[in-house]
């Protein structure tokens, strides 16, 4: 360094002029790197690094981009294309359980036993397990007046649910009710519900037990 000791840190002296820096480095850019043992090692190493960076980068992206799906925020989400995986089959019984929990459980209770004196039981009920033409009608238009279930007299009202539930929801709910808690009646198909709904077109009044007993004998 050309600094005098007393000049230490007072002024920084340059060791190269600006234009010579530019010139020398421009020369260096044009120059091939020195060859040792016949090959320029460093550029080869960098070529290798670049290629493997691109290679592993692409693999990583393929595994962690989840098809660039804007709705997927977790890299552990399933990577298969939609449709490539078989949709797990859900039985009408399981679907019906959801409808039951959302709609019927409030009155008939989760265990299907109802509330004595207010809501009749579905578990073991001869009505629930009776002809499907009757239960479909109950759910579609509701039920009014006295009814005997498992030897108990009830006199209350069930609202009509045909407006809020679709055919398949009603079918599934009834299928569930008719095969849960030890019940052993046949499943109800959406077609059967649709058929009854069509037959009842125009009627809005709820059923009475007496009326229902005339149907489906």
């Amino acid at each position: 360094m050309s600094q005098k000791p007393d000049n230490h840190f007072k002024v920084e002296q340059a060791a190269a002029s600006d234009d010579s820096i530019q010139q020398v480095h421009a020369q260096l850019l044009g120059q091939k790197p020195e060859k040792k043992d016949g090959y320029p090692m460093l550029p080869l190493v960098f070529l290798g690094v670049m290629c493997s960076a691109v290679f592993f980068g692409s693999i990583y992206m393929a595994h962690n981009s989840v098809r660039f799906d804007p709705l997927v925020v977790n890299e552990h989400a399933k990577r298969e294309k939609p449709g490539a995986v078989k949709v797990a089959a859900v039985s009408p019984h399981d679907l019906g359980k959801r409808v039951f929990k959302n709609t019927c459980m409030a009155c008939h209770q989760e265990n299907g036993l109802g509330v004595p004196g207010a809501f009749p039981p579905l578990a073991g009920s001869e009505w629930a397990q009776g002809p499907e033409d009757r239960v479909i009608r109950i759910v579609l238009l509701g039920l009014n007046g006295p009814i005997t279930v498992k030897g108990q007299e009830y006199n209350s009202a069930m609202a009509s649910l045909g407006g809020v539930l679709k055919d398949d929801q009603i079918a599934n709910a009834l299928t569930y009710v008719r095969s849960e808690w030890g019940n052993t009646a046949s499943a109800v198909t959406p077609e059967a519900v649709a058929k009854v709904r069509a037959e009842l077109a125009g009627r809005t009044a709820p059923w009475t037990a007496a009326e229902l007993l005339k149907i489906g004998n």
């Binding site: 060791a15 820096i21 020398v24 480095h25 260096l28 850019l29 120059q31 790197p33 960098f46």
Partner: peptide, 14 residues
């Protein structure tokens, strides 16, 4: 380079 008076080494990679 300005203060060391020495070109950047491996400058061709810059």
């Amino acid at each position: 380079p300005k203060l060391l008076g020495k070109p950047i080494s491996n400058y061709y990679l810059a």
